[in-house]
Design a protein around this nucleic acid. Structure first.
Length: 121
DNA sequence: CGAGTGACCGCAA
DNA sequence: ATTGCGGCCACTC
């Protein structure tokens, strides 16, 4: 696979037909909105779907400065660990997930293997 | 404008 | 098993 790997196929599965191809941030925010309650996605997964497989970090940046109305509590890292930068810290992040029925361990980890959601469904 | 930083990931020692 | 570092794009200063 080339470094500039694109996943146009998966992206087209969640992008409405009449939408023009938006910027990276727009794509990330669009993906976040598709995550159903009780499910989670990882930063790397979102970055890949948005078009840059190694831009997981950027997703974190958007999470911090981006739209606070988006369900960022449904975004966790690859190990299922919660985000320390979440408003109120990991405790608030855990509380938001618990409210949706997600089991969060005492060490602030979620069973990402079971809860991981893909937009192609 | 330019440079630095970030709620991350994956591969190499 | 752990540690280090490159990479990506958007945002702030």
């Amino acid at each position: 696979m080339s470094p500039k790997w694109r996943i146009g196929k998966l992206w087209s599965a969640i992008l409405p037909n009449d939408e023009v191809e938006p910027g990276f941030r727009e794509r990330v925010e669009h993906i976040i909105r598709q995550i159903p309650p009780g499910k989670v996605m990882t930063y790397g997964q979102i970055a890949a779907l948005a078009g840059s497989a190694h831009a997981a970090r950027i997703v974190g940046g958007i999470a911090h400065f981006g739209d606070p109305d988006l369900p960022w509590q449904r975004v966790v890292n690859k190990k299922g660990g919660l985000a320390g930068g979440y408003p109120g810290g990991r405790a608030e992040h855990a509380a938001a997930l618990s409210a949706e029925g997600v089991a969060v361990s005492d060490a602030f980890y979620v069973p990402v293997a079971e809860l991981l959601w893909w937009p192609e469904q």
